[in-house]
Amino acid sequence: MGFKLLSKLLVYLTASIMAIASPLAFSVDSSGEYPTVSEIPVGEVRLYQIADGVWSHIATQSFDGAVYPSNGLIVRDGDELLLIDTAWGAKNTAALLAEIEKQIGLPVTRAVSTHFHDDRVGGVDVLRAAGVATYASPSTRRLAEVEGNEIPTHSLEGLSSSGDAVRFGPVELFYPGAAHSTDNLIVYVPSASVLYGGCAIYELSRTSAGNVADADLAEWPTSIERIQQHYPEAQFVIPGHGLPGGLDLLKHTTNVVKAHTNRSVVE
């Protein structure tokens, strides 16, 4: 069995187990497998329904001669939608809004960016022009300005110390501490036991640490421990890039980060 097929099978099995364990909360999309990078042309966006009122959005972007996937989250909030992270750029984010209108038909009224990198804030200006209120932590807003990236308009308070959590509509926002970046936030959907790890969490097929220019490698494993301790009931975990899975993604990420750190020390 090929690795790609095995990865998709694991996603399907995880979703099936969740649907059985929580039949009222989960209505997993039966329309197909989780979209992969090879299936999404740059400039297009796919939506994948995880649970009743919960979707991931998947886009792709060219970077350094390669094409990478990027995940975000959409959560229903009454007759409105909360968006977590842009679709990595203005063109993708405009396509995301169009796809949401086509498939869901509810307005996106608020959006949260989970850290300051372009795959999370690139497209904020498109959201703002569409009347979406954009939010991020003060740290993310400051770092985005320093980096020359787009800056969300509103500040999220109460997320300055490791372990801080605040309720934001249908989700809980959690600051686990520094990891992929010093400002990275985690998003949890309690009604569906869905954990969105953003770039602080890796997919299972990833074996290298990737972009760690703004990471705190020493603190990252401790931050992941905080996530595990705060959300032990999480059933569906979405990484910032690639295929979702279960809580095993947290341990896998820790292993990859520690291996990278150990290699760096040896070198």
Rank of each mutant, 00 (worst) to 15 (best):
V126D: 13
Q229M: 11
G242Q: 03
V171H: 01
A130Y: 12
G148A: 14
E145Q: 03
G242C: 08
D119L: 00
L173P: 00
F26C: 12
V112W: 03
I186P: 01
E101N: 06
D119Y: 02
L10G: 07
R46H: 01
D119H: 00
D216L: 09
N149A: 03
D79Q: 15
E150W: 15
Y48I: 09
S7C: 09
H252P: 03
E44H: 02
H230G: 11
A19S: 03
G246L: 02
T261A: 06
G169N: 03
G89K: 12
G242T: 13
G122W: 14
F168V: 09
V265H: 03
L5A: 12
H252F: 04
I227H: 03
D216K: 06
I224H: 04
T14I: 09
I17Q: 10
P176K: 02
G32L: 09
W220Y: 11
I50T: 07
S22Q: 05
T261L: 03
L173I: 00
N149K: 00
E44W: 06
N211R: 08
S162N: 06
P138E: 15
R226N: 14
T207M: 11
G148Y: 01
E80W: 13
A90R: 13
G131D: 02
Q103M: 03
S208K: 13
F174M: 12
F174S: 12
L127E: 14
I227T: 04
V124P: 04
I17W: 03
A215T: 13
Q49S: 06
A165G: 11
A200N: 02
T207V: 10
V171L: 02
G210K: 12
S223Y: 02
S16V: 14
S62M: 02
A87L: 00
D85P: 00
D214A: 10
I201Q: 01
I74Y: 01
S16I: 01
V187Q: 01
F26A: 04
V187G: 12
V37I: 06
R110G: 11
G122P: 14
L159H: 13
I58R: 05
I50A: 10
L156A: 03
L73Q: 04
L82E: 07
E80N: 15
I84L: 11
A129I: 13
L217S: 04
P138N: 15
L5V: 11
T93Y: 00
A90Y: 04
G245V: 06
S162H: 01
V75Y: 08
L9D: 04
L249A: 13
F236M: 04
V54D: 03
H230V: 09
E172C: 14
S62A: 05
D214M: 08
A15E: 12
I84D: 00
G131M: 15
Y188M: 06
C199T: 01
C199S: 02
G158S: 07
K102R: 12
V132N: 15
W55H: 15
A192C: 06
G246C: 09
A192F: 13
A94C: 13
P221V: 12
Y196M: 02
E233M: 05
P138G: 04
E203L: 00
S7Q: 00
L73P: 00
T207Y: 04
E267V: 07
V126M: 14
G158H: 11
Y68C: 06
V166E: 09
P176A: 10
T182R: 03
V265Y: 02
G43P: 08
Y231N: 13
G163Y: 04
S181L: 01
D248N: 01
S181V: 11
T254H: 09
G53K: 08
E147V: 07
K91R: 12
T253M: 02
L249M: 04
T36L: 04
L106Q: 08
K4G: 03
Y12M: 14
I224E: 11
S139L: 04
I40C: 10
T134E: 12
L47Y: 10
A200S: 13
M18V: 06
R142F: 01
S205K: 02
P69A: 05
E150S: 03
A21G: 08
S161Y: 04
R263V: 03
I84G: 05
K4S: 02
S264F: 03
Y188A: 09
G240D: 06
S113I: 03
N149R: 06
S162P: 06
R76G: 07
R46F: 08
D248Y: 13
W220K: 08
H230N: 09
D214L: 09
F3C: 08
D64S: 05
G163F: 02
S16T: 10
Q228C: 01
E233R: 06
S137K: 14
K91S: 11
T14D: 10
A66E: 08
G65H: 00
Y175K: 08
W88D: 01
F168I: 15
G198T: 15
E172L: 12
F116E: 02
H154S: 07
S38C: 10
L249F: 15
I201L: 13
R46Q: 04
P23H: 08
G246A: 06
A94N: 13
I40R: 09
V54I: 04
P35A: 09
E157P: 09
N184H: 03
R110S: 11
R206K: 14
E225H: 00
D248T: 15
T207I: 15
T222M: 12
G122V: 04
L106V: 12
G89L: 07
G246M: 04
E225Y: 00
W88Q: 00
V45W: 07
D64W: 04
R128A: 12
P176S: 08
V194E: 03
M18P: 08
E267Q: 02
D85T: 00
T254C: 07
L173Q: 01
D52F: 01
H241D: 03
E225V: 11
V54H: 14
L24H: 12
L195Q: 04
L24E: 08
H230P: 09
E44M: 09
V132D: 04
N211H: 04
S16E: 11
N211M: 15
P107A: 11
T222F: 13
A234Y: 15
H57E: 05
L81H: 00
S162W: 09
H57M: 01
I151D: 15
Y48A: 03
